[in-house]
Nucleic acid binder design. Structure first.
Lengths: 303, 303
DNA sequence: CACGCCCATCCAAAAACCGCATCGGTCGAT
DNA sequence: ATCGACCGATGCGGTTTTTGGATGGGCGTG
């Protein structure tokens, strides 16, 4: 080894010894507090002073006093030690899943009703888990799950990837969105036949594959052929067209929390009665401990 | 010994190893950066993880990745290390006298002219030394110097204590404070004889012993006997009485920076011409390194 | 002046650490 | 499928560092 103080960096042990000595102003008692004897404690403090190049304690055989530099360094040392303790604590909490951050992807439609309820639930059941929300369509969610940009996604089936675990978190019925003046508003509840050969605003197969396929299947089963006047993928855009009386739209129940003037909702009988499903999906090998706590809360919500 | 992890505290060395590994994501390169070989680095990180009870790095033989807890702990570790470095730096600066705090006592009169100049000088010559100013009379300054409540005092002689070092920092003449209408305002300069048998506001021997004794000696030498109408110890109070035409006062030149309506100043010839002295005093054994730098500045001001 | 208190120093024993050699696992090329 | 390169973990001497008892020396106290 070449040098004397090549390693001009102190260790936490030295800080702890110094704080003890500075608080006791007595090497013997400080050593006792540190569970050691006095000579090594003396040595640790000498080492610390040596790497700093600064005398921290003025010690005569009769009394120990802090130097001005020592007074300042004592404050710094205490801060550092506090920081190490809190760092250890928060890290343990994160590892245990008690705290942490979860990145969440969600579809626009799930944001209307399901997500607000989820946030409330998590706020009380897992208050130290921060939720970072990103709206994205289902296909983007799958991509983001694979790259790890999100930990969990709330999306529409089908989810076929083998590396995912899933959980159905919501099921809901369809409602019709009708403009003011539409004669079908007279009925309390509609059937699919009410849309046969009538203008209907449909979901685009690219941007809203799930709704497009699901509705197509429903109409097929019922033997009904609406007149598709427009294809869109975002529900609030569809309602805007409904308001303009371009046609009517079939939307998930949750969309009734969107209030448009002159747009009214009527329930629609389907088979099954709640054909719209929302799933949570996450990588089975996701190692975010907060995710486990999050999923526990989610499962309790099922009841 | 009771327990397994009785020493549930990590060391800075472990943090440095972890940060290196987390940044390189490669134990070999991290070890190289830490000037050691890979096995001990592995061990340090294992130790850290064991102490925390948390896995920080996910390591396969092919890749190293941070766990969620590790990501958070990395931030904390960096903060801690930065803090240790800055703590060492500031402590060294304080020990060298380059930075620090000096507690200063000063008399009210020195605050009028000398102290503002001093603050300016220190602000440019020793910008990292903080000055904590406390106004107190000379006797209190002596007491505070002895107990260490102040590092340096600016006070009036005599300062006889053996444990003090002193430096004369200012010398000034006397001026007369006269109310509007006083006939002596006609003269550009006064002599002590101009105050013989005339109303004079005098210094109280208790609160302003220095000025009281000094003026008494001046009058004695000149064979002059003014008519003492009032005894005060604070200069601004004396000027208030001058304004009310209770009498005139003899004050140090510095007091001319106090502007009272209807109070005018005229210089007074004395022997010696500058009888008012101000000293800096400090304990010879004061160990505040900033004091040395402060005194250096002070001595340069003498020129 | 002897004694007690307290921090520094010395020294042998213990612990920690380091580096070398090696193992086991994985990926990519052949 | 096999081989070789790569990477982190582990076993093991040798060395450094640390520890704590004994001791020394300075300084107040009785």
């Amino acid at each position: 080894m070449t040098g004397a103080s090549f390693w001009s960096q102190f260790e936490l042990r030295q800080l702890r010894c110094f704080v003890a000595a500075a608080e006791e102003l007595h090497f013997g008692r400080a050593a006792q507090r540190m569970n050691m004897t006095q000579p090594p404690l003396s040595r640790q403090i000498q080492l610390l002073e040596h790497v700093l190049g600064v005398k921290l304690l003025d010690r005569t055989s009769r009394a120990v006093k802090l130097t001005p530099a020592g007074r300042v360094f004592l404050l710094e040392a205490r801060r550092i030690i506090r920081l190490t303790e809190s760092a250890a604590m928060t890290t343990r909490r994160i590892a245990s899943g008690e705290a942490g951050t979860i990145n969440i992807g969600f579809t626009a439609a799930s944001g209307y009703s399901f997500l607000p309820r989820l946030l409330l639930r998590m706020g009380s059941g897992a208050p130290n888990i921060a939720l970072a929300l990103k709206e994205m369509v289902s296909t983007d969610q799958v991509e983001s799950l694979l790259t790890g940009r999100i930990d969990v996604g709330f999306l529409r089936p089908p989810i076929d990837r083998g590396e995912f675990s899933t959980l159905r978190v919501a099921r809901e019925g369809l409602v019709a969105a009708l403009p003011s003046g539409d004669e079908r508003l007279a009925k309390a509840s509609l059937s699919l036949a009410d849309f046969d050969r009538k203008p209907l605003i449909m979901y685009a197969p690219e941007g809203a594959r799930y709704f497009h396929d699901m509705l197509s299947a429903q109409f097929e089963m019922a033997g009904v052929s609406p007149q598709f006047v427009q294809s869109l993928s975002q529900i609030h855009s569809m309602l805007a067209l409904v308001r303009a009386a371009i046609g009517v739209a079939l939307v998930p129940e949750a969309a009734t929390s969107l209030h448009f003037d002159d747009v009214h909702f009527r329930s629609v009988e389907t088979q099954p009665p709640q054909p719209v499903e929302l799933y949570a999906a996450w990588r089975s090998d996701n190692d975010n401990p907060a995710l486990a706590a999050f999923l526990d809360q989610l499962r309790q919500d099922e009841d």
